[in-house]
Amino acid sequence: DETGKELVLVLYDYQEKSPREVTIKKGDILTLLNSTNKDWWKIEVNDRQGFVPAAYLKKLD
């Protein structure tokens, strides 16, 4: 059920640097789980959840 889920576009590649982070690729469109922290957003990638720098993402309307 995708209702109410926010999507984000990945602006730059990011390689995870800790187990709490996930790797993302430029151009991916992913589900945003939590954006309350202005610097690190929690997203879902391939059934994995983790954090990436918010500056690497853009919210889609």
Rank of each mutant, 00 (worst) to 15 (best):
D1S: 13
D1A: 15
D1K: 05
D1I: 15
D1G: 15
E2Y: 11
T3M: 15
T3C: 11
T3F: 13
T3A: 13
G4N: 14
G4I: 14
G4P: 12
G4D: 11
G4E: 15
G4Q: 12
G4S: 15
K5F: 12
K5I: 11
K5T: 11
K5C: 09
K5M: 11
L7K: 14
L7G: 04
L7V: 09
L7R: 15
L7H: 10
L7Y: 15
L7M: 12
V8Q: 00
V8F: 05
L9V: 10
V10G: 04
V10H: 00
L11H: 03
L11M: 09
Y12W: 12
Y12N: 10
Y12K: 13
Y12R: 15
Y12C: 12
D13I: 01
D13A: 07
Y14R: 05
Y14G: 00
Q15M: 12
Q15R: 10
E16C: 09
E16Y: 05
E16W: 06
K17I: 07
K17Y: 04
K17H: 08
S18M: 07
S18I: 04
S18N: 13
P19K: 08
P19V: 09
P19W: 07
P19A: 12
R20A: 15
R20D: 12
R20P: 06
E21V: 02
E21F: 04
E21H: 04
E21N: 04
E21G: 10
V22F: 06
V22Q: 03
V22S: 03
T23S: 14
T23F: 03
T23P: 03
T23C: 04
I24H: 01
I24V: 15
I24M: 08
K25I: 08
K25M: 09
K25S: 10
K25C: 09
K25T: 11
K26I: 05
K26H: 06
K26P: 03
K26R: 10
G27A: 03
G27N: 06
G27K: 02
D28Q: 15
D28W: 14
D28G: 06
D28P: 01
D28F: 06
I29K: 05
I29S: 02
I29R: 05
I29C: 05
I29N: 02
L30A: 14
L30W: 14
T31Q: 13
L32T: 01
L32E: 00
N34E: 15
N34Y: 06
N34K: 07
S35K: 08
S35W: 11
S35D: 14
T36I: 08
T36H: 11
N37P: 04
N37V: 05
K38Q: 13
K38H: 13
K38D: 10
K38M: 09
D39Q: 11
D39T: 15
D39K: 11
D39G: 09
W40C: 06
W40N: 02
W40H: 03
W40Q: 03
W41K: 00
W41P: 00
K42T: 06
K42M: 14
K42S: 07
I43K: 00
I43Q: 00
I43E: 00
I43T: 02
I43G: 00
E44N: 06
E44S: 09
V45W: 09
V45D: 08
N46M: 09
N46P: 06
D47W: 07
R48C: 05
R48M: 07
Q49K: 11
Q49I: 15
Q49M: 09
G50E: 04
G50N: 02
G50M: 06
G50R: 04
G50V: 08
V52Y: 01
V52L: 01
V52G: 02
P53H: 02
P53K: 03
P53R: 03
A54E: 03
A54I: 04
A54W: 02
A54D: 01
A54V: 05
A55D: 09
A55C: 10
A55P: 09
A55L: 11
A55N: 11
A55M: 15
Y56F: 10
Y56T: 10
Y56P: 01
Y56V: 13
L57K: 01
L57N: 00
L57Y: 01
K58N: 07
K58S: 11
K58Y: 15
K58P: 01
K58G: 05
K58D: 06
K59S: 05
L60Q: 06
L60W: 07
L60A: 05
D61M: 14
D61Y: 09
D61L: 12
D61K: 14
